[in-house]
Amino acid sequence: MLELRLVQGSLLKKVIEAIKDLVTDANFDCSATGLSLQAMDSSHVALVALLLRSEGFEHYRCDRNISMGMNLNNMSKMLKCAGNDDIITIKGDDGGDTITFMFESPNQDKISDFEMKLMDIDSEHLGIPEAEYHAIVKMPSSEFSRICKDLSSIGDTVVISVTKEGVKFTTRGDIGTANIVCRQNKTIDKPDEATIIEMNEPVSLTFALRYLNSFTKATSLSESVTISLSSDLPVVIEYKIADMGYIRFYLAPKIED
């Protein structure tokens, strides 16, 4: 038996919108810890890891660990039927082949339930070890989104370099080149608008902008984004989900020939 009641239902709507273009089908794993997901895009270049901790739900009942395969496009269709202020409850039975989404309007005058078919998904779970990153950049998520969008109109790939000067985003295309440097900026009252650069050693990596642009669909989940870079690891782009967990996107770098 599974019953998860999420008062801020819009969070679930946003999470699914953020990942549905990257991943078609995914297993949602439910345990005492929370609701989690790990999935790769079809070319295995990017990976998304989601965690919604049990404490973030108003009511959380998960009698035993279960994995529920869902088509994210279908899930999106159903969650779009929930209002932004609705409370969403996810209900399922052990071994059942469907899951129910219940939507309650804030003043309880409209209650809907949508039953969705589950699917069997063969997915390989990758072990992601804790790592020391060469550099970690925290910046406003809207700024990161703007940079990825702007650069993708000029080139296909971006070089992200962190030095003591700041973080530099560089692209090159048929029409020319572009460099955007963001410097550390802690001296503002609003911490969400700060750019904070922690650097253990300089790092420079090249990534496909197409994927980074896809990750920025999570921008509305968090005011800030954290970019963790190491020369021998995929970059991690993390959006924290208030009081609940995170959505992390991993992207494998381009490798020099």
Binding site: S43, E124, L126, G127, I128, T206, P234, Y250, A252, I255
Partner: peptide, 14 residues
């Protein structure tokens, strides 16, 4: 421009 890396080159299946 370099070739695109894949996740399995960095993380091993559990």
């Amino acid at each position: 421009k370099g070739s695109q890396g894949r996740m399995e080159s960095f993380f091993k299946p559990m």
